[in-house]
Design a protein around this nucleic acid. Structure first.
Lengths: 235, 235
DNA sequence: CAATAGTGTAATAAAACTGTCACGACCCAG
DNA sequence: CTGGGTCGTGACAGTTTTATTACACTATTG
């Protein structure tokens, strides 16, 4: 995925008007779209752009779409890249051949751009669970919710259940200051009556667990207010 | 996946003739097909059969296909289950709605059974790459599903049926943490009511079976959460 | 029909995690 | 500089959760 969180699409389509139309719809959905009409160029661009998704027209200049697909699947670097194919040919055999060659979806022209986008999203949801696999990041802290694992600057961090939930809450709401009361309500199992100062202790435990040489303390104490996850230290 | 390596399909379709046709084609591809015509029953069957793929007709008796889809996505146990939807309605909006609800593919009637199979295979390839794999490997653990044989660092490992299924489940979803409840649902034959703690015992048996001198314990205990197969040990 | 392997439970031991305190350091208005 | 209000700490004892072990019981297999 793009550094700023945008999804990148490489569109290989030689019908310029159609390409523009598709590009427009995907842009609106937050995709960064790169276009080419030539098969050979597609292979180069994939290497450069590192798209999250490729949409290939079956009939294009140079190498055919299906051949591009085949090559992508053969190369380890792109064997797992989501690929959708477009075609004017309604032939069933073509669609089956495309799917068996490794395409993830096959859309026949004419198609609805919106449906194309919906299909692309469904595919990404499936193939890039990382995107969906809730992962939180904040200034060197990474939390993988599915694996239930936390890292600081790449090194594993060991947390108890409560510290884990506390950190997750902070990561879900970075920079925001929470009072002890709010933290108790958000992080602790409801129904319990717990001393406010207990929060301090857990914040301390979390700080210790996240501590690394020279790495700054990312939990900010806001006097008489509470705590927040904040990279700007006190100031 | 079926105990013998077959893929299981649940088909929810009220047109009996169509259901038979589809069933025929999937059977030929090695699927074990279960069929129902009623939405409510589908939800029960999914729990019992634990299919690898669900094909849902939009218009069925009882709960509608799209509602079944929505519910499946909402439940953690089935949130990741591959779903294809069928519809006689060609409406673009319906297709988009279906896809946005969480369906992975959307096929409009009339369709080619072969293409449906091809799409199903493409989807499984994408969503459960491990299901199709005949061999699983994870940090020195090798499982040959076909031969039903397991090795650790080359040495054979002897496992009871339950431990074998447990390990396979972990290998199919490495790094992911499963609660005891989830493990019971995924690994044990449903219909049985089993004590949660029983999972601990089987995890222990699996650990013992996989243990080798100096070889690390690859099963991670996540306190208050469950277990996962993870090479990074605790931390 | 044994003999053997595999299962689920419950009891017990061992860890890991929690919530509170008490004490001191700090901060800041008066 | 001084007292009240806040925080950071380190120590603990009580709980909760997990690991082990032993055992009765149910399949499986030959």
């Amino acid at each position: 995925m793009g550094k700023n969180g945008t999804k990148r699409l490489l569109l290989v389509e030689d019908d310029r008007a159609l390409a523009e139309l598709v590009k427009y719809h995907f842009s609106r959905e937050g995709f960064t779209v790169t276009t080419t009409a030539v098969g050979d160029e597609a292979l180069i661009l994939i290497d450069e752009v590192k798209p999250d998704l490729v949409i290939l027209d079956w009939m294009i200049e140079g190498i055919s779409g299906i051949e591009v697909c085949r090559r992508l699947r053969r190369s380890p670097a792109t064997a797992n890249l989501p690929i959708m194919m477009l075609t004017a040919r309604g032939e069933e055999d073509d669609r089956i051949r495309g799917l068996e060659t490794g395409a993830d979806d096959f859309v026949t022209k004419p198609f609805s751009p919106k449906e194309l986008v919906a299909r692309a999203n469904a595919l990404l949801r499936r193939s890039r669970p990382n995107l969906l696999a809730k992962k939180h990041t904040y200034h060197g802290i990474e939390m993988d919710v599915v694996a239930h694992r936390v890292r600081r600057d790449g090194q594993p961090v060991s947390l108890g259940p409560t510290e884990y939930r506390l950190l997750r809450h902070f990561l879900e709401n970075p920079q925001r200051v929470f009072s002890r009361q709010q933290l108790l309500e958000a992080v602790w199992p409801h129904n319990e009556e717990i001393e406010l100062r207990t929060v301090d202790v857990h914040v301390r435990r979390l700080r210790l667990a996240l501590a690394r040489d020279q790495a700054p303390d990312l939990i900010r104490t806001v006097r008489s207010e509470g705590y927040s996850l904040d990279a700007d230290g006190d100031t």
